[in-house]
């Protein structure tokens, strides 16, 4: 197991991502942040906390999206759904989708489909903590990247969060 981001690096990376999002969305009134269930919300929770430190909190619209019912591998395996909570309209908004690891791009494809069932956003951007380059199976590219890594198929990226796994760290695991 090789460490990709240590606790300290992870903290700095999330801060940077928060600032980058703010840089492009100085006025957050027309922007919504959406974390992807189940794992992306650990990142989005922290990202939103960072953004709150920099701007007035009442402007932040933050939701959670579960994409289980939109998956393209439903015929292979049954997945259990998590809670979706988008308590605002996304019609005409700039949406920032937030997930932990971008790999094949299939989750994001499903998320885009799911998102359109909530309305027609003006623009959708993607923010990920780890981008596994050269592994994409669909034409999807992140707008904000914590760290890009090269990993082979047999390797797995594991993201640990303190309030769930007891530590903050990102590791590369050989299977």
């Amino acid at each position: 197991m090789k460490s990709i981001l240590t606790e300290q690096q992870l903290e700095i990376t999330i801060k940077r991502l928060a600032h980058q999002v703010l840089e492009n969305h100085v006025d957050l009134t027309n922007t919504v942040l959406i974390g992807l269930q189940p794992r992306g919300v650990f990142l989005s929770d922290q990202l939103v906390d960072e953004i709150k430190k920099e701007t007035s909190t009442e402007k932040i619209q933050y939701g959670k999206l579960d994409i289980t019912f939109y998956r393209d591998d439903i015929r292979k395996e049954l997945h259990i759904a998590n809670r979706t909570d988008i308590p605002f309209s996304i019609e005409g908004k700039n949406v920032v989708l937030i997930d932990d690891v971008l790999y094949t791009g299939r989750t994001i494809r499903a998320a885009l489909d799911a998102l359109l069932d909530f309305g027609r956003p003006e623009k959708v951007e993607l923010c990920v903590l780890i981008d596994r380059r050269f592994s994409r199976q669909l034409p999807i590219h992140p707008d904000y990247t914590g760290k890009s890594i090269d990993a082979i198929v047999s390797q797995k990226v594991k993201v640990f969060w303190k309030n769930r796994d007891g530590k903050d760290e990102v590791c590369l695991v050989n299977d």
Binding site: D66, T68, F69, Y70, I74, I80, A81, N82, R83, T84, D85, D113, A114, L116, D117, F118, G119
Partner: peptide, 19 residues
């Protein structure tokens, strides 16, 4: 539990999923 998630789906502007 799964029904809870579908109940949320039924509140969306598009009350339909492709599953």
């Amino acid at each position: 539990e799964t029904a809870e998630q579908f109940k949320e789906v039924l509140q969306r502007p598009v009350k339909k999923v492709p599953s």
